[in-house]
Design a protein around this nucleic acid. Structure first.
Length: 152
DNA sequence: GCCAACGTTGGC
DNA sequence: GCCAACGTTGGC
């Protein structure tokens, strides 16, 4: 089972929104690199939920992938800002996952703590200029993050 | 609100 | 196929 970090702006979709909705199709991914990561994900993989453009930015909770190879419906919706007129119904370009709420952490892990604890090699999100919204997290790093997030 | 970093677009 | 221009992301 693999671990991931997924970014969202809380103004657009927050951990509390996921908690309320229970599950959500992770739509709007329009980066091939991020899409390719999601296409390599498996049901049961866990994802650290990261708030970007937040005060402070940081990891706020945990989610789980409950479906993979999900066709992002917004690519075929002309009213969506993620509409992609060049994507074909019989060969959808944007494939994503469905995520399920697991927990909201007792302790949010702010970005400055992440930077103080991990190198860019350990955790991609702390790299300067990192814009990718889906990144892999190694098992040992995931274990450390969970410990930090759940500490009393 | 600023701006560095990065991806994409389009002229050539 | 190069690369300048442009748009977006996202920390600060």
């Amino acid at each position: 089972m693999a671990h991931w970090l997924i970014k969202s702006e809380p103004d657009a979709f927050s951990i509390d929104d996921l908690k309320r909705n229970k599950t959500e199709i992770w739509d709007g991914i329009r980066s091939y690199q991020a899409r390719n990561y999601l296409m390599s994900a498996a049901v049961g993989d866990t994802a650290f939920f990261y708030h970007s453009n937040a005060k402070p930015p940081g990891i706020v909770g945990l989610a789980k992938f409950v479906a993979t190879n999900v066709v992002d419906p917004t690519q075929f919706d002309p009213t969506s800002k993620y509409y992609d007129a060049t994507s074909k119904q019989d060969a959808p370009r944007w494939i994503t996952v469905k995520v399920k709420f697991v927990e909201k952490f007792r302790n949010e892990i702010p970005l400055d703590t992440l930077k103080a604890t991990f190198s860019g090699d350990d955790l991609m999100v702390v790299r300067k200029g990192m814009r990718l919204s889906v990144t892999p997290v190694e098992e040992s790093i995931a274990a450390q993050l969970l410990e930090m997030a759940r500490a009393q």
